[in-house]
């Protein structure tokens, strides 16, 4: 899997870095999605190109690392279950799916989307039809959670002890 391939050449240089950033952002949104919703959006996105399985979906473990005191040297905290898959489009683009949990279908969907966003032809379809609706929903959910958290913020100036009045 680490051997050189034509697609990797496109990721060199500045445009390559920008593409990495865009793929990473898309992967984060896709990984955070609900499989059912992702499947429905993909199904509604229209005709998708032929692709082959580069790596059959499989489950495994990832050792999670933390840092001592949050920002120091690393240590192993514990493991996570991970599902992964890889696909290759007929046009050559390879897509990779890594998601927390053991959902093989989700890993495969993420891999397919990752491959598709690397093509000029399908990028708008996947971005507008799949990723953006998921992103919007996630943004909304996080905003609500943040607002509920903010309501539990302690405003210390309201806490005046009686004896301080004397």
């Amino acid at each position: 899997m680490t051997t050189a391939h034509p697609v990797s050449l496109k990721t060199d240089g500045e445009s390559g870095l920008a593409q990495h950033a865009a793929r990473r952002e898309a992967m984060a949104v896709l990984a955070g999605s609900d499989t059912g919703e992702l499947a429905a959006l993909l199904a509604a996105a229209g005709e998708l190109p032929a692709h082959e399985e580069l790596r059959k979906p499989e489950s495994g473990l990832l050792m999670l690392r933390g840092r001592i005191s949050g920002d120091g040297s690393p240590f192993n905290v514990g493991e996570l279950t991970v599902a992964r898959a890889a696909v290759k489009l007929a046009s050559g683009e390879m897509g990779f799916g890594y998601v927390l949990g053991r959902d093989h279908e989700k890993a495969r969907f993420v891999a397919l989307c990752d491959a598709l966003v690397q093509t000029d032809r399908f990028r708008p379809l996947i971005e507008n039809g799949v990723i953006e609706p998921l992103r919007a929903r996630q943004r909304e959910a996080r905003k609500l959670a943040a607002e509920r958290t903010a309501a539990t913020r302690v405003e210390f100036f309201t806490l005046v002890r009686g004896e301080d009045d004397k």
Binding site: G60, L61, L62, M63, L64, R65, G66, R67, P74
Partner: peptide, 8 residues
């Protein structure tokens, strides 16, 4: 095991 994560 697939590997180690980046430190969180």
């Amino acid at each position: 095991r697939f590997g180690m994560s980046e430190p969180v």
